[in-house]
Design a protein around this nucleic acid. Structure first.
Lengths: 246, 246
DNA sequence: TTGCTCCTCACGTCACGTGAGGTGGC
DNA sequence: TTGCTCCTCACGTCACGTGAGGTGGC
């Protein structure tokens, strides 16, 4: 006969774990010797290994208790289910491993793939880091607030980047960040932006359908504090708001 | 800006989890709106995804807190360590999956490989299920009480099965289970067992070295209750104890 | 005699879950 | 107005870990 320490060491659990399984009714209390010590037999070892194996697979102790008294047919069905759960856990861990690596590698982990692709495209066009990061933060907010819609919107905006005129304007807007508010190019740029916004295919962008308006959504979410804009961009905004009816 | 519910849904955690990370100091408390609601920005979402990814890998929250303020070099080293831990977990789950399957398949899970091989050999020799199960239980106790020694002992006993005379005697002993106590064959068997026990190569079995005596160990552990023996085996034991000096 | 194992409470831990009771937003 | 979200306590849960204080075995 075995002491609780021998049993625990043989099976590979702690003494406290064996006592816990007694408390939870998973392992029957064995007979005691003259000193009040528990004395275990081979069948206790077998039962404990059963419990340990199931518990190691993440099966809750309450479920294990059920399974220990289940008939072979029920048990077999439960085993299939448990194996599926283990497989799912392994897949989850593999995914997590990749994500941990991405934690170091870049930013793709933090946003939908479409947004990450879009940001890569912006960088390819030559936009400044600051502007790309602003877009990244904006899109994270949009993706979080409008799940399901963000993907469509960003795909739409990606397509717009195929237009050389749009790219030229976006680059100019980016460069205007650094311009002096008195720079004459700001006036030209404001005019060009207004002209572009008047084009037929562009107005569709934010009036597509009542439920799918991107711009109001984004503005409500982001609510950029005007004071955070660069002097050049503050002037540009002023120019864009001038003569809006015209 | 996002509410706590939008943030949680985007990242894939519960609202309670976000609050818990605030409590534990992992995620900074954001500013509140007029109603006292927390309002989150893109950087909070990024930080929360970081935390979730690490927590999903099983990294304790206290460790995550350290890592969030670690420099890139420390972080990179920690990531390698975490990846190793994930790999170990995956291996553990794979092992556990196999063991769960064995839970159904047989008994190998409950004992060292050598013991299982030995029991298979006993069955091959044609011993009864009852005798094999008794040996199994005895060996589980021996393996538990004398870790490291059981393997050697069982290997030694396995080798003994190569002796045709030993096999014949063991089979006879097994059959004697069912014999009537008055059966004359018991007397013959007792004599044959005594003769075998007198052989030079057999006495070495339990006197090999002071520290490695198998029989006393096994008897002390198993302490078979004589009343649990079959009538035939009880008589056999009586016969073996007669004339012990002779 | 000393150290190790065993015994029974019983509180602690980890990462949240789950009401309890109340207020704000659409 | 109704239902949903948000707020702050604060106790509950799961599977044990960890002393606290005491006794038994070699």
């Amino acid at each position: 006969m075995l002491t609780i320490g021998q049993l625990a060491a043989f099976v590979g659990v702690t003494v406290r774990t064996v006592r816990h399984y007694h408390d939870r009714g998973l392992l029957a209390e064995p007979a005691r010797d003259a000193s009040g010590y528990r004395r275990y037999g081979a069948s206790d070892a077998i039962q404990l290994i059963r419990i340990k194996t199931l518990a190691g697979a993440g099966v809750p102790l309450s479920r294990i208790k059920e399974l220990l008294t289940a008939d072979p047919d029920q048990f077999a069905r439960a085993v299939v289910e448990i194996e599926r759960a283990i497989d799912a856990k392994i897949r989850q861990l593999r995914l997590n491993r990749r994500q941990i690596a991405e934690l170091m590698a870049g930013e793709r982990l933090y946003m939908p793939t479409e947004v990450a692709d879009y940001l890569d495209r912006l960088r390819g066009i030559g936009l400044s880091r600051r502007t790309v990061e602003e877009e990244r933060d904006d899109w994270i907010l949009v993706a979080a607030a409008a799940p399901g819609k963000a993907r469509g919107w960003v795909t739409e905006k990606m397509a717009r980047l195929d237009d050389p005129e749009f790219r030229r304007l976006y680059r100019a807007y980016d460069e205007a960040l650094e311009w002096d508010p008195a720079d004459e190019r700001l006036v030209e740029l404001a005019a060009a932006l207004k002209a572009y916004a008047g084009r037929e295919d562009v107005t569709s962008w934010d009036t597509q359908s009542a439920d799918e308006k991107f711009l109001p959504y984004a503005l409500a979410l982001i609510a950029p504090d005007r004071s955070e804009l660069s002097p050049g961009h503050q002037r540009l905004m002023d120019l864009l708001e001038e003569n809006v009816p015209g």
